[in-house]
Design a protein around this nucleic acid. Structure first.
Length: 605
RNA sequence: GGUUCCGUAGCUCAGCUGGAUAGAGCAACAGCCUUCUAAGCUGUGGGUCCCGCGUUCGAAUCGCGGCGGAAUCACCA
């Protein structure tokens, strides 16, 4: 039983015994005692003043006295203004630690047979360029959120909708045909996604040149600049060709389709490598080339049912003015799909494949409006989870000078960034002489874990809703509130446990309750007990950053303990064993919380 | 202009389902390694919690009104 629950019940009993009133639920506010004061938990007595008809101090005093007499868990109490600070007895903490120690996955809840099925969509890249820092935030958040939902007893299906069709990929294909000379990932030594990205850039470069030339021509003919530019953009031969290619693609032209498939496969091979390095994965991947037609069908079905309407030019619209929104286009006048149509199609296919109870879309906050509309449309179309779909909306990653712009070459590439982080970790380890005695493979693995840990933690510790700043020059720190700091603490504990084991010390399954604990030790157990609450909260709030901040707090607390007290050199045998068990469980909870974030921890560093 | 989100130390961020004197890290300065890993620990300085009004015994937290920033409101995706 949770200590909080036990004290809440005892407090309710106290109020009843002393004042003859039932305390309404929510009236009993137990919170953690502030650092400056003595005690573990604090009861706020202001809500009881009307019942006691006494001042706050006296009321707190009376309740405290009653609790001390009747509840063995209460060892002592003190009163400051309207706050009753309660010190929980050491045996209760030891009992708690025994409870935590008994379960290797303590704090996590496994999914039962009838658990709700949560589908999480994340990543969702376009296939015309490699992944960048913005995608990383998406992938890391999506992966962490999936872990958190699973840890809360849900069945989780991770999914990815790949935007593999459209004008963007045609641009890359066209540029490759024109300027590629048959270059392949093998012949160039480039990752497939980077290769395709380069041709996308090449298209843009040549296209811009054409536009400039045409615009100058039109302006020379007396057209005003803006008009000339628009006309030039429309008529530039490269764009015409790209459009023609898209038409051929839609018409299933075998040559275009073959090229499309070949180039997309290069990209997928590249993405897979990046995903693997990042440590994220998917249970089911959808492709827009397969879902966009389904959406069309579903929209036409809705049109028949009178949910939507058709304009004179043949385009199909939804009227969302009753919901306080606008008209929304669902099919163009030429019958082709728009973005929204594709999302409807994807939803349809997913619903056919899985009994979805809850759908979470991990997509940037620039699409808040889109998902507001999608939710309404899916609901209208009869998807039971449509109305309550979760748009896990996260903020942009910005550079100190503002947004990342591919045109200015300021986009931070995911592969480059990860490689840089690992390099830095390797250098730091070497400087500190940490990896002496490890094999080359082991050392490299530590560099990978630490470098990626720094990067992932940097991204995940920030509240997802907020825009965040990434400063490439200052790079990411390895000291302070960082991933490596947390990993380091884990490695330290593991080192101690190895030494204990070498010394033949055996850890009991259950600790005796009569060990006297110091405040730091009690605080640490309390912190460990919080883990379960944090996992739950991260789930209900859809907020992985709670776990990042929790892990930091735990580690900070442990390091103080580590500094102030000896473990292996403690002379009192029972206390030594207790500290080892405590340390072991701290390392366990570090590993579990970091694991939920998708961050590995090294055995040494 | 409408809608949504954000505004806390020089910088990056916690805290926000109302509770005590608003916390970390970085940066600056001063200490701690013959002792379990110094990627650590301790200390000093640093605040109009954007502003105003309201609700409350009590507001960084809730409500209303401003100000500032971001996103969005496409027959782009």
């Amino acid at each position: 039983m949770k200590i909080e629950d036990r004290l809440t019940a005892a407090a309710a009993e106290a109020v009843k015994a002393l004042y003859g009133c039932e305390a309404a639920p929510g009236m009993i506010q137990l919170q953690k005692t502030k650092k400056e004061f003595e005690g573990h938990l604090t009861l706020v007595v202001f809500p009881f003043l009307k019942m006691s008809k006494k001042g706050p101090e006296q009321t707190a005093q009376e309740i405290g006295e009653y609790l001390k007499l009747h509840e063995p868990a209460v060892a002592a109490y003190n009163v400051i203004k309207g706050f009753l600070n309660i010190t929980v007895a050491s045996p209760v903490w030891i009992e708690m630690l025994n409870h935590i120690d008994a379960d290797p996955e303590w704090g996590l809840t496994e999914a039962k047979e009838d658990a709700p099925l949560v589908m999480i969509e994340y990543s969702s890249p376009n296939t015309n360029k490699p992944l960048h820092l913005g995608h990383m935030r998406n992938n890391l958040l999506g992966n962490a959120l999936a872990n958190v939902m699973a840890a809360n007893g849900n069945k989780v299906v991770k999914t990815n909708i790949v935007n593999d069709r459209g004008i963007h990929i045609c641009k890359s294909m066209l540029a490759w045909l024109k300027y590629g000379n048959g270059e392949t990932p093998e012949s160039s030594g480039k990752k497939g996604d980077h290769l395709i990205g380069d041709y996308y850039v090449a298209f843009d470069k040549h296209y811009k040149a054409e536009v400039k030339e045409l615009q100058a021509k039109y302006e020379a003919d007396g057209m005003d600049a803006e008009k000339a530019k628009a006309k030039a953009e429309e008529e530039a031969p490269l764009m015409q060709e790209a459009r023609e290619m898209l038409r051929k693609w839609e018409a299933n032209d075998p040559e275009v389709r073959a090229l499309w498939e070949k180039m997309n496969n290069w990209v997928y091979a590249g993405f897979d490598e990046t995903y693997r390095m990042m440590g994220v994965g998917f249970d089911k991947i959808y492709y827009e080339s397969q879902t966009y037609l389904e959406g069309k069908e579903k929209v036409l079905e809705g049109l028949e049912k009178g949910l939507f309407y058709r304009k004179e030019d043949g385009s199909v619209w939804a009227d969302l003015t009753p919901e306080g929104l606008d008209q929304k286009l669902l099919l163009r006048s030429d019958g082709t799909s728009v973005y929204m149509t594709q999302d409807i199609g994807t939803a349809k296919m997913r619903f056919e494949d899985y009994p979805i109870d809850k759908m979470i879309y991990v997509v940037g906050n620039e699409q808040n409006y889109h998902f507001q509309v999608l939710s309404i449309l899916l609901d209208k179309l009869g998807f039971k989870w449509g109305k309550d779909l979760i748009h896990f909306s996260y903020g942009m990653v910005e550079l100190p000078e503002g947004k990342m712009k591919s045109r200015e070459g300021t986009v931070v590439d995911a592969d480059d960034l990860m490689a840089t982080m690992i390099d830095t970790a390797r250098e730091t380890s070497a400087e500190l002489g940490k990896l002496d005695g490890l094999s080359k493979e082991e050392a490299e693995n530590v560099a990978r874990i630490v470098g990626l840990g720094a990067l992932k933690y940097f991204i995940l510790k920030v509240d997802a809703r907020k825009n965040m700043t990434f400063n490439p020059k200052e790079s990411i720190d390895f000291n302070g509130n960082t991933g490596p700091f947390i990993q380091y603490t884990y490695a330290r504990i593991r080192s101690i446990l190895r030494k204990a084991s070498e010394a033949g010390i055996e850890l009991p399954a259950t600790l005796p309750a009569d060990i006297e604990l110091n405040t730091k030790e009690e605080d640490l157990i309390q912190k460990l007990a919080d883990f379960r609450v944090m996992v739950k909260q991260a789930g209900t709030d859809y907020n992985p950053s709670i776990l990042a901040n929790y892990a930091y707090d735990l580690v900070k607390e442990y390091n103080q303990f580590y500094h102030d007290f000896s473990i292996l050199r403690e002379e009192d045998e029972a206390r030594k064993v207790f500290r080892l068990v405590l340390s072991k469980n701290v390392s366990k909870v570090i590993k579990l919380s970091m694991g939920l974030l998708g961050i590995e921890v090294p055995e040494r560093m």
